[in-house]
Computed example of a mutant assay.
Amino acid sequence: MALETAENVKEIYRSRFLDTGIAKRNQVWRTLCSSYFDDAMCREGSVLDLACGYGEFINNIDVKEKYAVDLNPDAKGYLKSDVSFRSCMANDLSHIPSNTLDRAFTSNFLEHLPDKKNCDLVLKEVLRVLKPGGRFIILGPNIRYAYREYWDFYDHYLELSHLSLEEGLKMNGYTVVHNIPRFLPFTMAKNQPTHDFLVKAYLAMPFVWRFFGKQFLVTAQKPHKI
């Protein structure tokens, strides 16, 4: 966290998303949300997108109350009007009261934290803002399966597998309710097929994930009594 500033995050976002294309990413996430992640939400409840990027998830998810945070202040310009945005560090959600959110979500963020101490701070802060029974859904590169591609990105620091993340979540007060070691491919950049039909077909065939998936999907819950 301390290794990144708003300015260099802005530059990383601009250069990296140009490789994939914002429109392409948004198209994929529209399908991911409608065909998969919408079912994990409380439609009439609330969700926080932690490190929201350009809003690919939060703009497309079907939830009544939407919140997003990102260190990059440019993110706000890409978010829809129904998203409440704050440019801030992920370990300081002081603008959100405790025990208020039904869901929190993050995609490809924890690996950018400099160490597990900072990861603990983020996990604890998300736990604070979740309601009892609320869930934190985490998507990210699984170092067990993406150990080569992982180091192609200069701002990757913290190596996590589905097992180490589960252990960290438990140590910080969560109960892990779902742990999928291999979910999505590592990246949608370059020549990865991203047509709606192909994304839907991939999501509908979990047995295929074990061959192509290099990102974990871990869902953790805040206990009703802690």
Rank of each mutant, 00 (worst) to 15 (best):
K116W: 03
M1P: 12
P181W: 02
V47H: 00
P193V: 04
S15H: 06
F57H: 04
R14C: 00
M41Q: 08
H112Y: 05
R148A: 12
T175P: 00
A75R: 01
L113K: 04
S81E: 15
F85M: 08
T187Y: 04
V122L: 07
E125P: 10
G55K: 04
V83W: 01
K66A: 02
K64H: 10
D92S: 12
E111L: 08
E7F: 06
T187K: 10
A104F: 03
G55Q: 09
D155M: 05
D196L: 05
Y36F: 11
S81H: 11
G45Y: 00
D19I: 08
I226K: 11
R30T: 10
P132T: 03
A2Y: 15
Y54R: 13
C88K: 08
E65V: 04
G21N: 05
S161G: 12
L121V: 03
C33Q: 07
R128G: 10
N179W: 05
I143E: 10
N142Y: 01
F207R: 13
H224I: 13
N179G: 02
P181V: 01
L169F: 04
E7A: 14
L158E: 00
E149F: 00
L48T: 01
Q215F: 02
Q192S: 09
V129R: 00
C119S: 10
F153M: 10
F183M: 08
A51N: 08
F57P: 09
G133M: 05
K200N: 15
R86Y: 10
N179I: 02
F85C: 05
R128L: 09
R144G: 05
E111D: 11
Y67N: 05
L71M: 12
K124D: 06
Y36N: 07
K10R: 14
P193S: 05
L121A: 15
G140N: 09
R16Q: 14
H162T: 06
M205C: 12
